[in-house]
């Protein structure tokens, strides 16, 4: 698996898209910091970018890589290699190269700006960790979609749909549900609702840092325990790990069954 990972990673590191992605983040970081000169504001803007764009890029890139390297995958399949290691290797190659672009692209301008001397370093690290988690999750979901759909167009369609669903539509439905059932105790429902969507989960994780003052304004005891203590942080991270494991497990499962 490590060999496949190595080659996929090298392959992607040379791909134009990795540079585009890297350049995009670099530009974003530079614009936010040096034109704006306000670290706290930059972190907030970055959060919006990360929870929306990282999943989108992760899914699209994952699906694209899978379809583009289909023949190469077949070549690998004929080699004495285990199937899960081929797909996990490719998956990790994509996810890691995307994560690298993210970390370096955003990290470099921030380091130059004097991140290590500022108090925002924890907020920023949390942003990057969340970004990496989202990349891992959405690339894995993308591989799942691609493994289940031979048709490229269909695969892309589902990938975009998945992103739309989790990034926007889910929250709309979530909001309507909360408003419709406002007469009932909702704090458990709203927390569960958050856990079921990795984008919401990551957002909550960042909220814990950026908007804790507002979150503590709400009365519910479950909320209070969740946001007021480290409990929320631990639970969120554990669920994120589960969110990575589930699609990865399905990649392994699916890859063992699939015909090429």
């Amino acid at each position: 698996m490590l060999k496949i990972l190595k080659y996929s990673f090298y392959d992607l590191m040379r791909s134009r898209w990795s540079y585009v992605y890297f350049a995009f983040y670099l530009l974003l970081g530079v614009v936010l910091l040096f034109l704006n000169n306000d670290l706290s504001k930059a972190v907030i803007t970055l959060m919006n970018v990360i929870i929306v764009l990282v999943p989108l890029i992760g899914t699209i890139f994952g699906v694209m890589y899978y379809y583009n390297s289909k023949e190469f995958t077949e070549l690998l399949l004929a080699q004495p290699l285990k199937r899960p290691s081929i797909f996990l290797g490719q998956y990790l190659g994509v996810a890691l190269s995307l994560s690298m672009s993210l970390i370096l692209g955003l990290g470099i301008p921030f380091v130059f700006y004097g991140l290590f001397k500022s108090g925002a370093i924890w907020d920023f690290s949390l942003l990057l960790i969340t970004g990496v988690f989202l990349t891992l999750i959405f690339t894995a979901l993308a591989f799942n979609i691609a493994l289940s759909n031979e048709n490229k167009i269909k695969g892309f369609g589902y990938a975009i749909l998945l992103w739309l669903l989790l990034a926007i539509i889910y929250d709309g439905v979530f909001l309507m549900t909360l408003i419709l059932f406002e007469d009932y105790p909702l704090d458990k429902l709203s927390l569960v609702g958050t856990m079921l969507n990795p984008i919401d989960l990551s957002r909550t994780l960042i909220l814990l840092k950026l908007d804790i003052s507002a979150l503590l304004g709400y009365t519910g005891a479950v909320f209070k325990q969740f946001f007021g203590t480290n409990f929320g942080l631990i639970v969120s991270f554990s669920v994120l790990v589960v969110w990575v494991m589930l699609p990865v497990w399905r990649i392994v499962f699916k890859s063992k069954k699939k015909d090429f």
Partner: peptide
Amino acid sequence: DYLPQIANFPSNL
């Protein structure tokens, strides 16, 4: 040893 029908390799290699 297997020679596949259509060989498409990683284009960056």
